[in-house]
Protein backbone atom coordinates (compact mmCIF):
# COMPACT_ATOMS: atom_id res chain seq x y z
CA UNK A 1 0.00 0.00 0.00
CA UNK A 2 2.84 2.34 0.81
CA UNK A 3 4.16 2.00 -2.67
CA UNK A 4 1.31 4.20 -3.90
CA UNK A 5 2.80 7.13 -2.13
CA UNK A 6 6.15 8.65 -2.81
CA UNK A 7 7.97 9.66 0.40
CA UNK A 8 7.79 13.36 -0.45
CA UNK A 9 4.04 13.07 -0.84
CA UNK A 10 3.61 12.24 2.79
CA UNK A 11 1.72 14.94 4.58
CA UNK A 12 0.49 15.24 8.12
CA UNK A 13 -3.06 14.72 6.91
CA UNK A 14 -2.18 11.56 5.02
CA UNK A 15 -0.20 10.20 7.95
CA UNK A 16 -3.04 10.82 10.35
CA UNK A 17 -5.44 9.11 7.92
CA UNK A 18 -3.22 6.08 7.77
CA UNK A 19 -2.91 6.04 11.54
CA UNK A 20 -6.67 6.21 11.97
CA UNK A 21 -7.30 3.48 9.41
CA UNK A 22 -4.72 1.21 10.96
CA UNK A 23 -6.08 1.75 14.46
CA UNK A 24 -9.62 1.04 13.34
CA UNK A 25 -8.54 -2.03 11.44
CA UNK A 26 -6.59 -3.42 14.36
CA UNK A 27 -9.44 -2.93 16.75
CA UNK A 28 -11.90 -4.49 14.31
CA UNK A 29 -9.66 -7.44 13.59
CA UNK A 30 -9.17 -7.99 17.29
CA UNK A 31 -12.80 -8.61 18.05
CA UNK A 32 -14.34 -9.63 14.70
CA UNK A 33 -13.81 -12.36 12.18
CA UNK A 34 -14.85 -10.14 9.19
CA UNK A 35 -11.79 -8.24 7.91
CA UNK A 36 -11.91 -4.48 7.27
CA UNK A 37 -11.70 -3.39 3.57
CA UNK A 38 -8.15 -2.14 3.91
CA UNK A 39 -7.31 -2.29 0.25
CA UNK A 40 -10.48 -0.49 -0.86
CA UNK A 41 -9.99 2.26 1.71
CA UNK A 42 -6.38 2.75 0.71
CA UNK A 43 -7.29 2.81 -2.98
CA UNK A 44 -9.96 5.43 -2.36
CA UNK A 45 -7.49 7.48 -0.37
CA UNK A 46 -4.94 7.26 -3.12
CA UNK A 47 -7.45 8.22 -5.82
CA UNK A 48 -8.49 11.28 -3.84
CA UNK A 49 -4.88 12.28 -3.33
CA UNK A 50 -4.12 11.92 -7.03
CA UNK A 51 -7.13 14.02 -7.92
CA UNK A 52 -6.13 16.68 -5.42
CA UNK A 53 -2.64 16.83 -6.85
CA UNK A 54 -4.06 17.20 -10.38
CA UNK A 55 -5.83 20.33 -9.10
CA UNK A 56 -9.18 18.82 -9.95
CA UNK A 57 -10.86 21.31 -7.60
CA UNK A 58 -10.92 23.85 -10.37
CA UNK A 59 -13.02 21.79 -12.76
CA UNK A 60 -14.73 18.98 -10.78
CA UNK A 61 -15.07 20.21 -7.24
CA UNK A 62 -18.42 18.51 -6.53
CA UNK A 63 -17.25 15.05 -7.58
CA UNK A 64 -14.16 15.38 -5.41
CA UNK A 65 -16.21 16.54 -2.44
CA UNK A 66 -18.46 13.53 -2.91
CA UNK A 67 -15.44 11.24 -2.93
CA UNK A 68 -14.21 12.71 0.32
CA UNK A 69 -17.65 12.34 1.90
CA UNK A 70 -17.83 8.68 0.82
CA UNK A 71 -14.43 7.96 2.31
CA UNK A 72 -15.51 9.52 5.56
CA UNK A 73 -18.68 7.43 5.51
CA UNK A 74 -16.62 4.31 4.81
CA UNK A 75 -14.47 4.95 7.85
CA UNK A 76 -17.57 5.49 9.93
CA UNK A 77 -18.88 2.14 8.69
CA UNK A 78 -15.65 0.46 9.76
CA UNK A 79 -16.15 1.90 13.22
CA UNK A 80 -19.68 0.54 13.11
CA UNK A 81 -18.18 -2.80 12.10
CA UNK A 82 -20.28 -2.77 8.94
CA UNK A 83 -17.44 -3.95 6.78
CA UNK A 84 -19.56 -4.69 3.70
CA UNK A 85 -20.91 -1.15 3.69
CA UNK A 86 -17.42 0.19 4.39
CA UNK A 87 -16.03 -1.71 1.41
CA UNK A 88 -18.77 -0.49 -0.93
CA UNK A 89 -18.43 3.13 0.23
CA UNK A 90 -14.68 2.93 -0.25
CA UNK A 91 -15.14 1.61 -3.78
CA UNK A 92 -17.64 4.37 -4.54
CA UNK A 93 -15.30 6.99 -3.07
CA UNK A 94 -12.52 5.77 -5.34
CA UNK A 95 -14.79 5.91 -8.40
CA UNK A 96 -15.96 9.41 -7.48
CA UNK A 97 -12.35 10.52 -7.22
CA UNK A 98 -11.50 8.88 -10.55
CA UNK A 99 -14.53 10.50 -12.19
CA UNK A 100 -13.43 13.85 -10.77
CA UNK A 101 -10.00 13.35 -12.29
CA UNK A 102 -11.37 12.30 -15.68
CA UNK A 103 -13.90 15.12 -15.87
CA UNK A 104 -11.30 17.66 -14.79
CA UNK A 105 -8.96 16.39 -17.50
CA UNK A 106 -11.67 16.67 -20.15
CA UNK A 107 -12.77 20.11 -18.95
CA UNK A 108 -9.21 21.36 -18.97
CA UNK A 109 -8.58 19.95 -22.43
CA UNK A 110 -11.74 21.61 -23.73
CA UNK A 111 -10.79 24.88 -22.05
CA UNK A 112 -7.38 24.80 -23.72
CA UNK A 113 -9.07 24.11 -27.05
CA UNK A 114 -11.47 27.00 -26.53
CA UNK A 115 -8.55 29.26 -25.76
CA UNK A 116 -6.82 28.22 -28.94
CA UNK A 117 -9.97 28.72 -30.99
CA UNK A 118 -10.33 32.21 -29.54
CA UNK A 119 -6.76 33.18 -30.27
CA UNK A 120 -7.11 31.87 -33.82
CA UNK A 121 -10.31 33.85 -34.27
CA UNK A 122 -8.61 36.96 -32.93
CA UNK A 123 -5.77 36.52 -35.40
CA UNK A 124 -8.26 36.09 -38.23
CA UNK A 125 -10.23 39.12 -37.13
CA UNK A 126 -7.09 41.20 -36.96
CA UNK A 127 -6.21 40.02 -40.41
CA UNK A 128 -9.65 40.96 -41.74
CA UNK A 129 -9.29 44.36 -40.13
CA UNK A 130 -5.89 44.79 -41.69
CA UNK A 131 -7.30 43.80 -45.07
CA UNK A 132 -9.84 46.60 -44.85
CA UNK A 133 -6.91 48.98 -44.74
CA UNK A 134 -6.97 49.87 -41.05
CA UNK A 135 -3.44 49.82 -39.75
CA UNK A 136 -2.85 47.98 -36.49
Amino acid sequence: MKSFLQPEQWTMAAASHWLLVTTVLLSVMACSSVPAPVAELAAAEQAILTAEQARVNTYAASELAQARQKLQDARAAVVQKDMLQASRLAQQSKLDAELALARAGAAEALAVNDEMKKSTEILQQEMLRNQTGVKP
Binding site: E98, L99, R103, G105, A109
Partner: peptide, 13 residues
Protein backbone atom coordinates in the same frame (compact mmCIF):
# COMPACT_ATOMS: atom_id res chain seq x y z
CA UNK B 1 -22.89 4.77 -13.65
CA UNK B 2 -19.52 6.11 -12.51
CA UNK B 3 -17.57 3.91 -14.90
CA UNK B 4 -19.75 4.95 -17.85
CA UNK B 5 -19.22 8.60 -16.92
CA UNK B 6 -15.48 8.06 -16.54
CA UNK B 7 -15.38 6.43 -19.97
CA UNK B 8 -17.22 9.43 -21.41
CA UNK B 9 -14.91 11.91 -19.75
CA UNK B 10 -11.80 10.07 -20.89
CA UNK B 11 -13.10 9.82 -24.44
CA UNK B 12 -13.90 13.55 -24.47
CA UNK B 13 -10.50 14.36 -23.00
Amino acid sequence: DRKVNIAWAQAQD
